[in-house]
Measured scan of single mutants.
Amino acid sequence: TGIVNVSSSLNVRSSASTSSKVIGSLSGNTKVTIVGEEGAFYKIEYKGSHGYVAKEYI
């Protein structure tokens, strides 16, 4: 489990790349469930599926 550490919002992406499609966003202080790691990204549970967020903001 981690907490989103941004002042505005954090993009949730379809894969572990900054060039991948943005599938949603999370507000600061949102609790997320981390299910894996891939490079500079965490794989998280997101809306019944999975998404990826940059580690530096969790």
Rank of each mutant, 00 (worst) to 15 (best):
K31E: 11
I3N: 06
K31Y: 13
E38Y: 09
G28P: 15
T18K: 12
F41R: 00
S7N: 12
H50I: 15
K21F: 08
S19I: 10
Y52N: 00
E45L: 14
G39M: 05
A54N: 10
K21N: 13
V35D: 03
G51P: 00
N29Q: 12
E37P: 03
A16H: 06
S25T: 15
T30S: 12
V6E: 06
L10G: 04
V32C: 05
K21V: 12
L26V: 09
L10A: 14
G39S: 05
S19Y: 07
G39W: 04
I58P: 01
I34C: 03
G2T: 07
S7E: 11
S25N: 11
V22L: 07
G36C: 07
I58A: 02
L10F: 04
S20Y: 06
I44F: 02
L26Q: 02
Y42F: 09
T30H: 07
S8H: 15
I44W: 00
A16C: 05
F41N: 02
S20V: 03
S8K: 13
K55V: 05
E38S: 09
F41H: 04
R13N: 09
I34M: 03
T18C: 15
S17R: 07
S19R: 11
S20L: 02
I58L: 07
T33Y: 10
K31R: 12
S17I: 06
S27E: 14
V53N: 00
E38F: 09
V12Y: 01
V12A: 01
V22G: 03
S9C: 13
K55A: 05
E37C: 09
Y57F: 15
V35W: 07
E45I: 13
L10P: 10
T18W: 11
Y42W: 10
N29A: 10
G36R: 04
L10W: 03
V12G: 00
G51D: 00
Y46M: 04
T33H: 11
Y52D: 00
I44Q: 00
G2I: 09
G2C: 09
K47G: 13
L26S: 01
V12E: 00
T1G: 07
S49P: 01
L10C: 13
H50L: 11
G24M: 05
N5H: 10
I3R: 13
N29S: 10
G48A: 07
K47I: 07
E37Q: 09
I44H: 00
Y42H: 03
V32Q: 01
S9W: 10
K43T: 05
K47Y: 11
E37K: 06
T30D: 11
Y46C: 05
E56D: 08
A54F: 12
G24K: 03
G48D: 09
S27H: 13
S14N: 09
S8E: 13
V32G: 00
A16M: 04
S19V: 10
V4Y: 03
R13P: 00
A16S: 08
S19L: 11
G2A: 08
E37R: 05
V22A: 06
I3V: 13
G39L: 06
N29K: 11
K55S: 05
S25P: 05
S17P: 01
V22T: 07
A16Y: 04
K31H: 10
S14R: 11
F41Q: 02
T1K: 10
T33C: 11
G39Y: 05
R13D: 01
N11P: 15
Y57C: 13
Y52K: 00
K47H: 11
S27P: 15
I34Q: 00
A40M: 12
S17V: 07
V4S: 06
G48C: 08
Y52E: 00
E38M: 07
I34K: 01
S49I: 13
N5L: 09
G2L: 07
G28L: 12
S20C: 05
S27Q: 14
V4W: 03
I23L: 10
K21W: 08
F41I: 01
S9D: 11
A54P: 15
S15L: 09
A40I: 10
S20I: 02
A16N: 05
I58D: 02
K21L: 12
V53D: 00
L10H: 03
V53L: 04
Y42I: 04
S49K: 11
S9N: 12
I3P: 04
K43M: 11
L26W: 02
I3H: 09
E37V: 11
A40S: 11
V6C: 14
G51Q: 02
T1M: 14
S7Q: 12
R13M: 15
Y42C: 04
A40T: 09
H50V: 15
K55R: 08
L26C: 04
G39N: 08
S25D: 07
Y46S: 01
V53A: 04
I23T: 03
S17A: 08
S7C: 14
S15A: 14
N11V: 15
E38I: 09
S14H: 11
N5S: 11
S27N: 13
K21M: 13
G28I: 11
K43S: 03
V22Y: 05
V4T: 08
V12I: 08
K43Y: 07
G48Q: 07
R13S: 06
S17W: 04
V6W: 05
K21C: 10
S17E: 08
E37D: 08
G39P: 02
E38P: 01
Y52Q: 00
I3L: 10
V35L: 15
I3Q: 08
I23N: 01
S17K: 07
G51H: 02
S27A: 14
S19D: 15
G39K: 06
S7L: 10
V35C: 08
N11W: 09
V4R: 04
A16T: 07
I23Q: 02
T1D: 08
G36A: 08
V22K: 06
A40P: 14
V32M: 03
L26P: 00
S14A: 15
G36T: 04
V53F: 01
L26H: 01
S9K: 12
Y57H: 12
G51T: 01
L10K: 03
G36W: 04
L26M: 06
A16R: 03
S20G: 15
T18H: 15
V22F: 07
S15C: 11
I3S: 06
S25R: 13
A54S: 11
E38K: 07
E56F: 08
N5M: 11
K31G: 06
A40W: 08
G51E: 01
